[in-house]
Simulated assay, not measured.
Amino acid sequence: MLDIIKWFLYAFTFSLFIFGLMTDSLINILNGLKSIMISRNILITDYFLVGGIGASFINAALLTFICLFLIQITKTKITGSGIAAIFSVSGFALFGKNLVNVWFMFLGVIIYTLIKREKISDHLYSAFFGMAMAPLTSEFIFSKWLPLETGIILSIVVGIFTGLIIVPLSRYFYRFHQGYCLYNTGLTAGLITTIIISIMRSDIV
């Protein structure tokens, strides 16, 4: 059964890739991917408008494949929440997540597992859901109010920091809402992002 699910997910990824190639030329797709990766990605950034339909679906296909590859190399068991996490990444890769902004937050989760001496497979799906905070990276790097070098440094620091705290905070918030929120890590990511964006837009920064 798990093999069927795995191959279905790979087939889904392949279909995203093929659809992207069918809807635009290779040059337009590459230019569109570039536009997507250097956009600020604040809500709501429609990648169809930023880079085109083809580039958007290729972006979604690549991020979905990366998720499946990480599941494969970490030998993470595919579960219901795992499937939801993968489709969450796929869907939001059409507005918000891209090949540039997901990595620092993911690195933070890896650092957390090393500090706690836990397996990355235990928190991989939390990292996928936590990629909801990925646009923060782009917001810092490509911000109009920060020099590029400062933005890159802040994006690394904030990205790793959010990755470090997403797992323990999501555990706490689960106790807080007692399971009534089905998108637990998403709630946690939303609250973290709200605080960070509020600080960015205040007189503190």
Rank of each mutant, 00 (worst) to 15 (best):
residue 144 K to H: 03
residue 174 Y to C: 11
residue 144 K to S: 15
residue 151 G to D: 10
residue 100 V to R: 13
residue 140 F to L: 12
residue 134 A to G: 03
residue 115 I to V: 14
residue 177 H to F: 09
residue 140 F to D: 01
residue 165 I to S: 15
residue 184 N to Y: 04
residue 161 F to A: 08
residue 164 L to S: 02
residue 116 K to P: 05
residue 125 Y to D: 11
residue 173 F to Q: 05
residue 111 I to D: 00
residue 117 R to F: 02
residue 109 V to N: 01
residue 86 I to E: 14
residue 155 S to Q: 07
residue 163 G to F: 15
residue 154 L to G: 04
residue 142 F to S: 08
residue 99 L to N: 08
residue 158 V to N: 05
residue 160 I to V: 14
residue 130 G to Q: 09
residue 187 L to M: 01
residue 179 G to M: 00
residue 151 G to I: 15
residue 116 K to F: 08
residue 188 T to Y: 00
residue 144 K to T: 12
residue 186 G to F: 00
residue 149 E to W: 11
residue 109 V to Q: 09
residue 185 T to R: 00
residue 139 E to T: 07
residue 154 L to S: 08
residue 86 I to S: 04
residue 94 L to P: 02
residue 147 P to I: 14
residue 129 F to I: 01
residue 137 T to N: 11
residue 131 M to A: 10
residue 129 F to A: 03
residue 123 H to S: 03
residue 188 T to K: 01
residue 185 T to H: 03
residue 116 K to R: 10
residue 117 R to Q: 15
residue 181 C to E: 10
residue 116 K to D: 05
residue 153 I to D: 08
residue 90 S to F: 13
residue 171 R to A: 07
residue 148 L to R: 04
residue 86 I to Q: 13
residue 123 H to C: 01
residue 176 F to I: 12
residue 88 S to H: 05
residue 100 V to A: 10
residue 189 A to H: 00
residue 86 I to C: 12
residue 133 M to I: 13
residue 176 F to P: 12
residue 186 G to W: 00
residue 107 L to H: 07
